[in-house]
Amino acid sequence: MVERVCTFFWAYSSFYKWKGEAIMSLLQVVGLGKSYDTETKVLENVNFDIEAGEFVSIIGPSGAGKSTLLRCINRMVTISEGNVLFDGANVGTLGKKQLRRLRTNIGMVFQHYNLVPRLTVIENVLHGRFGYKTTLQGVLGRFTEQEKKRAFYLLQKLGIEEHAYKRCDQLSGGQQQRVGIARALIQDPKLVLCDEPIASLDPNASKVIMDHLKSITSELGITCMVNLHQVEVAQQYSDRIIGLNQGKVVFDGSNHQLTDDRINRIYGTQTRELITV
């Protein structure tokens, strides 16, 4: 049974691949495998393509390898097997300089925001510009007036302009996450990777953050990949959902294709009940 479903998804993803050849996809993941130690494979033969302008959610039980998958895309962890092609470049083989350039093109948003707590909001946002600076410029802390203005503009867009000079540790979780998003956006990325951006937030703040992420794609045309724990949120916001289980892609399709049966397959039946409650 499982095999049948897998074959189905295989067929599905090759359909995407075929489509991808016509217009080059923004991101192509081909036969990706990852293991941290020699024994366990955290990711195994992962294949999918992502087009520019897509909003993709990745769901799966804890430990399925969602975070690892995102970190392979900007090579925050080394890739063990297969290839990741971003915008034509093979991520796995990039040199140091090219890797930096790649990372400036990919923004990242974290569950725990990963801001520098003691620095001001505006400083944290501008940290997103370091990828464009030489070491000397960055060490001296020189940012152009234009960069600063853009940082303010982004803060205004995200509705936290009035906190610009507050220390980040004085903000609420939702506000901190918006700083995190601003930091990613000021990079002028083509792709934003979000690793459980709302897992530490209450429902209201979660909605605000998800709305902002959605508008990144719909208004700015920036591709988003979001790891999520809540299936409902994934269904509500994304065009496309990828389901991971034990390092393998077990679902890849649009949100209305994600039936209860398939959700059960992604999470395993018992755990699913725990999650919905």
Binding site: E123, Q146, K148, K149, F152, Q156, E161, Y165, K166, R167
Partner: peptide, 25 residues
């Protein structure tokens, strides 16, 4: 370039450039 509608929250240094520090104690 997008423009800021209300630049009221911006602090400026003496030389007119936008400040990044809050100037706290």
């Amino acid at each position: 370039m997008e423009t800021i509608t209300k630049p009221t929250y911006m602090k400026r240094k003496k030389d007119g450039s936008i400040s990044l520090k809050s100037g706290s104690k």
